[in-house]
């Protein structure tokens, strides 16, 4: 996992706030052409929303194109793909006087969050712009709450913006609890301690043994991945689950059920962990 992604997980608004953004954009769109892109965004289909946003951007002009561009860029951020160019797009939208004010505010808010996640220096200015300029209440709450947490963690920055800080403190009581929870920075959750031995064994196998003997497993997922998944899900129980698979492997292969065509042309046989640990989780 990249450092950037780890940091991004601590920043508010990247995962929650999806519906807020989609609703705000949908309300601002005022055009049927962006409906599908907004729906896809609200569903969390980032890649599809990104493509759809670009498609609408190419088809329309004026404010609609700006909104579509904003949605495509935010989808790209959610995907964690093309992050820098997406940030550039949002920064341009924020600073461009040609876009309508609400689109600029939304772009500034999203850019501020992304810049905060990346440890940039423009986050405060972007969030402050969104907080001070927007006429959209949910965006006003979120931009304010995010800016509050951002400034709270940085005393010099806070002291350089005394009026904004006083304003944030005076209106913080109006923010709903859900907004507080959404905007609060979260610490990333690491892997469970119980899964560590399994992860070490697999890491050793993949680094030292796998390259020497090549890909030998006929099952999908591969045995090392299976062990990893089982260890993640069940800690030390991953050991007997893996041993059971080693014993079963020839029978599963000879049964030739559930064939899976791999990208390299090989055929493997599906044997997911979920087929063998349902009873550990209880009935669905």
């Amino acid at each position: 996992m990249s450092v950037r992604r780890t940091v991004a997980q601590q920043i508010p608004g990247l995962v929650p706030g999806i519906f807020f953004f989609a609703m705000a954009l949908g309300a601002a769109a005022g055009s049927a052409t962006l409906d599908l892109a907004v729906d896809l965004f609200a569903e969390g289909s980032w890649a599809a929303a990104h493509v759809e946003g670009l498609r609408v951007q190419a088809e329309v002009s004026g404010p609609g194109a700006n909104r579509a561009q904003s949605l495509a860029a935010v989808s790209s951020l959610r995907l964690d793909a093309g992050r820098e160019s997406a940030k550039d797009v949002l920064a341009n939208l924020w600073r461009a006087g040609s876009a309508d004010l609400e689109t600029r505010c939304m772009a500034a808010y999203e850019y501020g969050l992304a810049d905060w996640a990346d440890g940039g220096t423009n986050a405060a200015a972007a969030l402050e712009f969104a907080y001070l300029e927007t006429r959209d209440t949910p965006l006003f709450w979120r931009a304010g709450c995010s800016l509050y947490f951002y400034l709270k963690a940085d005393k010099p920055l806070r002291e350089s913006r005394p009026a904004t800080w006083r304003s944030l403190q005076s209106c913080r009581d109006a923010w709903p609890l859900a907004v507080w929870q959404e905007c609060r920075p979260r610490k990333p959750r690491g892997p469970s301690v119980a899964s560590l031995p399994g992860r070490w064994i697999v890491a050793f196998y993949r680094a030292q043994i796998g390259p020497a003997i090549g890909s030998r497993c006929d099952l999908q997922p591969s045995c090392s991945e299976y062990f990893l998944q089982a260890s993640r899900a069940h800690g030390w129980l991953g050991v007997p689950i893996m041993a059971d698979r080693f014993v079963r492997e020839p029978s599963v292969v000879s049964a030739r059920e559930k064939p899976v065509a791999m990208p390299d042309g090989r055929v493997r046989f599906a044997d997911p962990v979920s087929d063998h640990d349902r009873w550990l989780k209880g009935k669905p």
Binding site: L237, V239, P240, I241, M242, A243, D244, F246, V247, R248, H276, R278, W279
Partner: peptide, 18 residues
């Protein structure tokens, strides 16, 4: 051996489910 032995117990349970 601990691995194989625990696998035998787990396999006994899981094979019944299977």
């Amino acid at each position: 051996e601990f691995t194989w032995y625990s696998g035998s117990i787990y396999g006994g349970i899981d094979s019944a489910h299977r």
